[in-house]
Amino acid sequence: MNLKRLYLLFLIVILSSLTVSAVFSEEASTSESPDVSGTLFEHVLDGNTLELFPFVPEITLPHGITMHRLMLVLSVLLITGFYSAWIKRGDLKPKTRTILLESLVIFVRDDIVYPIMGEERGAKWLPFFTTMFLFLSVLNLLGLIPALKTATGNINVTTAMAIVVLLLTFIAGFKGLGFVHFFKNLFPEGTPLGIGIFVMLLELLSLFTKSMVLSLRLFANMFAGHLAILSFLVLIFVITPFFGFISVPFSVFTYTLEVLVGLLQAFVFTLLSCIFIMMASTPEGE
């Protein structure tokens, strides 16, 4: 990065710090003890109000639609919209935007599905994992846009995804190994019956815990990450308005980190579910 750009970035950060300090100094001085945790969680938790701009009255969503539900629909619309608009059959000379969309699929194919599942089985599973990766990464990144929220920061969404993975683990296991062999596969060979059954139960339990940890990981990362961006800003309320000079650069840094984390967590979720499904549907020792 050249010096001029760095200087510009620095200027932007300083100016925004000044703005934030100016905006909040009045509010902070008027209210004696701000409800810090309330303010924080209001921005992360599900709600049915859409606040598009500061100081503009917020929109109350119709009954039954909450922000997180809206985000789910929005992500579906975004992905299907872009993909169906920019991917055309028989497009041998691709444009940049086509390559952008295709590269995500190629990333999932070459870095997640094919190395783990092999080409033959991977080709069948690829649409599912690509959908999962795109869905999760778009949901993760949507939360970084102001006024929008992170649906993956809600444990219900991540649990729903994990349940899908869990069901598919069982289905793939029954299909790949057969109903009896699937449970036999969990049973370690050459051990006494009592211990074997105990280990089998543990293995069975671990299938559930692995999926639940999958959901918890995504949820906690997104929730805590987006909270971290905000908590730096909230320090302005708590300490002094001029703390903005420190907290705004920090929150900008966390924000850029969060872009990385959002993509990484979508990658990890897809990778792990791919591994779980593969592990459950191949015989032991392969």
Binding site: L216, L271, L272, I275
Partner: peptide, 30 residues
């Protein structure tokens, strides 16, 4: 490539345990 995949897998498993702790703490705090 293989090492990276396994590294992320292992890190993720450990991370899951750390999250358990963090979430239990969150439950208690709030």
């Amino acid at each position: 490539k293989d090492i990276r995949t396994n590294m992320i897998l292992m890190a993720a498993l450990i991370e899951g345990l750390a999250f358990f702790g963090a979430i239990i703490a969150l439950l208690v705090v709030f």
